[in-house]
Structures are given as C-alpha cells and as structure tokens.
Design a protein around this nucleic acid. Structure first.
Lengths: 200, 200
DNA sequence: CGGTGTGAATGCTTTCACAGCC
DNA sequence: GGCTGTGAAAGCATTCACACCG
C-alpha cells in the first residue's frame, strides 16, 4: 500500500485510474489495487466517483480507534522552522489536527501565536498524555533532537516526522519519517544515481 | 539500496552492523548488504572503520559526473518556511551545497540574507542553467506549487523536495520527494495502521 | 466498449544462514 | 569467537492480463 493522499484536488466528478496515473506518475495498476483494498466499490466505466473515493480514503485513515474524527499531533520546537509550520502545516480538512506546540524557551512560547495552545517543553509529557496526542512534528535544533525524541517516545507517541538532520535512535514501537532537506535530497540523489546506472 | 546517511555521528573508531541496527532500527543484514555494494572492503571482526566508511558513502553520492565535489541545489519560495531553511538546511560537510534562493517578491529577496545569492523567481531559468543546479527545495505557497514545479522541471532539474501539500504532476524525468508535514504524518499513520492490522 | 477488480506472474528488497577472515 | 560478505530463500510491492460489470 502506497500513500493515498491525492485527496482529490480535482474538479471533476469522476476520475479514471489512468487519469490519476497521468497526474501523479503512480501506475494505474497500483492505484487500482490500492483503491480496491479500501473495499469500497465506487468504480464503474466512468472511473471512480471522486466524492465517495476521497471520503473513503479519509475514513480509512481516521478509522476505528480514534473517538473523535481526527488524529492529534503536535509541533515540538518553535524555532524558525517550527514557527513556519504553526500556521500552514495542516489543512483543516486533513485527517490530522495540531493540538499543541512546544518550545524550550518560555519566552518564545509567549510571543508566538497559533490556533492551538503553545507550551514550554517541560510540559511535554503532561500535555501529550492528557490530550492523547499520537504524532509529533520534530523541529528542534540538532543537539536537542535525540533527547527530545526519547521523551516523545516514552510518552507513547506513535510516529515522529523528523525535520532534523539527526538520525534518531528509538525503540521500534515508534516509527520515524526523515524529512529534513538533507534527507530528502539524499533520497532524490540516490534515486537519480540508480536510474543513471540502469541506463548504462 | 536504502539511504546511507548515518554519516557517522559516531565518536568511535569502529562500528559493527549490529550497533548500527540498535541505533537506527535498520536491520543488520540490510546494512551489511548496503555497505557491501559500496564495494569497499573495510570491515573486520571489530566492525567497520568509521572513517573509511563515511568517506566511501560521501564519495558514492558525490560521484563521477559532478566536476566539483558537491551537488548543487536551490530553495524556491522564501516565505517563513523557505527562509527557515536558508541558514540551517545543509550542513557544510554534506554532499550538497545550496547555490541560490528564489522568491516571487523582489522585496523579500532584498530583505533576507543568506550565504548564497537570492534572486527573484523571474530569474529562475537563467540562474539554474548557468549555475548547473540539479535539485530544488520547493517551499512556495500552495497555489504556485504546480506551476513553479513545471518551470523547474523544464530547466532540467533532477529532483524536487516538495514541502508543499500539492501533489505535483510532472514528467517522469524528474523525481519528487513529498516531505510536507501532511505527507509525512500520513505515511506514519498508514505505517501504524498496517502494523495494527497485522497484530490482529 | 471502457474501465474496474483481482488472481497469477514478475521483479525487488530484505532476511537467513553460513563460509571465510581477523 | 565475533563479525563481515554474500549466495540462496522468503517476503512484499508492482505489474500483467483478463473476467466481469455498468
């Protein structure tokens, strides 16, 4: 199962898997398979009904065990980077809500504004457990990364989006997605290198 | 080949694959295989020599066709997010150098400071081709994402780190890494969902 | 027909397991 | 004995190809 986050930025009513392939580069077979294991049955010879499809994708992600409809997450580290995410990170109709932001500096926490509460990092454990936060966006500075991640992990956080260049070392109960520019570019580069090697 | 960017934040002289597994969660077999296809032979019963290993990784990424040693990249879009990356994005010893930043607003370009030149987006094509830039970090706002990506793609950019929530539709000659918070969290969540499903 | 849904085939990635080296 | 390097096995993800449905 790949990701299914096309989330229909379409303005049609129906879409065919072939059309999705053209727009995204993911192969039509793969798209058909992924959609099929949502176990809805909204396709016909005009393609999929976009409305039903995006509905189904969202509800697959939101799912059973979350009592209210969205997954809760937080931003840890409100330097330039973290602060940049405060506003823009999560579109309202996404399966996630940001419930809190944290920064080491009390000052910083007071200066910044957001549509959710900001706390000093000392309250990390408390807020995460009372709010039932499941995921974290990690934007602290290099030298705090590992230790902060450990604290998150011991609160029972399920996943961390790591915007840090540090390679985190955590128990396997928490999964990490490395999304710093360095990480992203390294992936792109090695993609490029293998495809270059294949051509020879 | 997975990624190989542990880049030795170690302070030992040797390291065993088992130790890497503990620190990163990537399995030792995989690590051994990845390292082996670097075709260096720097292991023994004390493990790998860290110095030689990280050397080899870097030179594998830097590689043949780049005349000077680092891959060139640029930041496109200097809103809060792009600006946050200006300073911190690329450590000096990485296989990448940032050679330029772009923003639509001439004003913005003049206000911000960086260790590399900033240009208005109108000069995108020109700068990229004269500087021979290969990769881009895309941090423009939602509604510019697709059109800007198309311009990048037609300059022959090889890869885009997409910090935008937009799903880009580009020719397959350019590869895209989706690294917005929404994207990252969605991946984490679907990870979590499948592992939960397996346990049942 | 055009396009989905899905077994069966393919091809990659990851792990196993063990020979060889320090 | 401990650890690497690597064929061979197992496990996943992706694609093929075709029956079936609107």
């Amino acid at each position: 199962m790949l990701l299914a986050r096309l989330l229909a930025q379409q303005n049609q009513e129906h879409i065919t898997s072939l059309e999705i392939e053209r727009q995204t580069g993911w192969s039509q077979s793969l798209i058909r398979r992924d959609i099929s294991l949502l176990e809805i049955r909204c396709g016909s010879s005009n393609g999929y009904k976009i409305r039903e499809l995006s509905e189904a994708i969202k509800s697959a992600l939101i799912a059973q065990d979350a009592p209210d409809s969205q997954r809760k997450c937080c931003i840890v580290g409100l330097g330039n980077l973290g602060a940049a995410f405060l506003e823009s990170a999560m579109p309202a109709d996404s399966p996630f809500v940001i419930k809190a932001g944290f920064d080491f500096s009390v000052n910083r926490v007071e200066i910044l504004k957001a549509s959710f509460p900001l706390h000093p990092t000392s309250m990390l454990e408390e807020v995460i457990s009372t709010e039932n936060i499941e995921f974290a966006i990690l934007t602290v500075c290099e030298n705090m990364a590992q230790s902060t991640a450990e604290r998150l992990s011991s609160c029972g956080i399920k996943g961390i989006a790591n915007y840090t260049n540090t390679v985190l070392s955590l128990p396997e109960s928490v999964s990490v997605e490395n999304v710093s520019p360095l990480s992203a570019l390294t992936n792109l580069l090695s993609d490029f290198l293998v495809s270059a090697r294949l051509k020879r």
